[in-house]
Each structure stands twice: as structure tokens, then as C-alpha cells.
């Protein structure tokens, strides 16, 4: 096996292990799948006045809220969770790269939460009977793939913050809604004061929401959607580059501070 194959295998197994662990916990599935459905229902009623065409906007937007929440709570906790179960030590002491493991784990969580987007699509179209059509299905599908990649890369950074900044885990609840607001999941950021716009531009979920909404409703040109992908990929690449150094730093710090395990702390 060469190094790429080894890393790929690590990532795949981390993905599988995380998937299985989540699937054996009915409550996790409940959380991952049901919460976005609830947001979808709520947004549907709140935005009822906008007419039935908005149903697809609601499906995509609430799906994005689910993706972000899962990324924040489950993905972000990827490292800390292992620490609680005492498995972080064997992971770190193995020759495998922790980054690859975390990438696999976050990917599993994000993939599962995509299920909720499909769920709310089905709920709203079949049970509630709203017309749901994707204006540009092919572009939408690719946008979704790029989104998943971009969010997982973001999750990689996020997970390290949980270790690097002790108070970060305590602030997750505070971080859930700002992203909903700043990334235009369920209302356009044009409604927000102008000074927040540059912040939105720095967040890859913003570009993801724009591409997905645009492809779903047909409100963006192909060129615009391509540009959104470009932004997401550019951010992802820089996250991957940064994460290399970041993971070195956090692992060293954890070994100095004796925080790889919770015992004794």
C-alpha cells in the first residue's frame, strides 16, 4: 500500500465506524433527522405568505441548518468525543493521521444529515403536497457534493478548536444561529445591515447556500453557481492547508498539558 491508499483506508474506516456508532444510537438519528424537519415545518409556516414556490427554498434552507447543526455538534465534537471515551489516546498513538480520522468522522455526520434534507423534501412534497421541483437538477447535485466537501473541511478546523480553545465547546450553542443568520439559509442576507456582508463572504456555508438556493430555484446563472463552487473550493483548500499545522499544534499541546484523556483532569 502506498501512503495515499493507507490514508484512504483510514478515512473510510473512520467513516464506517462513526456511521455505525451513530446508527446504533436511535437518539442521534432522531436528532440528525428530525430537527431539520422541524425547522422545515416552522419555516414553511412562517414563510407561508410567500406562496408555494417557496417550499423548495424552505427545503434547501432548513436542510442547510441541519447540516450546520450536525457539523457543529457532532463534527465539532469528533475529537472531544473520543477524548471522553478514552479512545483518543490509542488514536493518537497509532501511526495514522488524526486529520484523516477526523475527516472520515465528520464526513459520516455530514452525510447522515443530508438524509434529513431528503426527508424534508419528501415530507413537504408528498405529505403536505407542495409542488417541489429543482430548476437545475444537475447543477444542484454537483453543488451538494461541493457543499459536503466544503463543510467537512470546515469541520476539520472546527474540531481542532474544541481542543485548542477550552471554552469553545461551551460556546457551541452560541454559534448555531449566527451561521443561520449570516449565511442566508432562510432569508437573504440583503436584509441584514451592510457591515455584516463581508463576514458572510468569509463563510463557506454562505457560498454553499447561495449555490444550492440558486440551483434549486433557477435564480442564478451557471456562471454564478460556478463562482460559488470556486469560493467553496478555495476555502476548503486553505482549510486543509491550515489544518496540517493546526493539528500539529493541538496534538503537541495536548501531550504537554496531559489532556489526551479526561482522567486526572
Amino acid at each position: 500500500m502506498n501512503q495515499v491508499q493507507k490514508n484512504l483506508r483510514v478515512m473510510l474506516l473512520a467513516f464506517e465506524v462513526e456511521m455505525r456508532q451513530n446508527l446504533t444510537d436511535g437518539f442521534v438519528i432522531f436528532g440528525i433527522l428530525i430537527q431539520p424537519l422541524l425547522v422545515a415545518l416552522m419555516a414553511l409556516w412562517m414563510l407561508k405568505g410567500k406562496g408555494p414556490d417557496y417550499a423548495i427554498f424552505v427545503v434547501v434552507g432548513s436542510g442547510m441548518t441541519g447540516l450546520w447543526t450536525t457539523l457543529l455538534f457532532n463534527g465539532g465534537n469528533s475529537i472531544t468525543g473520543e477524548r471522553w471515551t478514552g479512545t483518543l489516546e490509542p488514536l493518537v498513538a497509532s501511526p495514522a493521521s488524526l486529520r484523516m480520522i477526523i475527516f472520515g468522522k465528520v464526513l459520516a455526520n455530514v452525510a447522515q444529515s443530508l438524509g434529513s434534507m431528503i426527508g424534508s423534501y419528501l415530507l413537504i412534497s408528498t405529505i403536505l403536497g407542495y409542488p417541489l421541483t429543482l430548476a437545475r437538477p444537475a447543477l444542484f447535485a454537483v453543488s451538494l457534493l461541493v457543499t459536503v466537501f466544503a463543510l467537512v473541511c470546515f469541520g476539520l478546523i472546527l474540531a481542532s478548536f474544541f481542543i485548542l480553545i477550552p471554552d469553545f465547546a461551551r460556546m457551541v450553542n452560541t454559534l448555531e444561529f449566527p451561521i443561520y443568520i449570516l449565511c442566508g439559509f432562510l432569508f437573504p442576507i440583503a436584509l441584514l445591515p451592510g457591515w455584516t456582508t463581508p463576514i458572510s463572504y468569509l463563510l463557506s456555508p454562505y457560498w454553499a447556500a447561495q449555490a444550492l438556493h440558486g440551483a434549486a430555484q433557477g435564480t442564478l446563472t451557471t456562471g454564478q453557481i460556478l463562482a460559488d463552487w470556486g469560493w467553496m473550493l478555495a476555502f476548503s483548500l486553505s482549510y486543509i492547508l491550515i489544518s496540517g499545522k493546526l493539528y500539529q499544534v493541538i496534538l503537541r499541546k495536548a501531550r504537554v498539558d496531559a489532556t489526551l484523556d479526561i482522567v486526572g483532569n
Binding site: R20, T85, G86
Partner: peptide, 11 residues
């Protein structure tokens, strides 16, 4: 390390 931590209990 002696003890029961460090395994995936759900697997």
C-alpha cells in the same frame, strides 16, 4: 492501559 476505557463500546 489497565481499565475499560479506550474501546468503542457500541461496536
Amino acid at each position: 492501559f489497565g481499565g475499560e476505557r479506550g474501546l468503542y463500546w457500541r461496536l
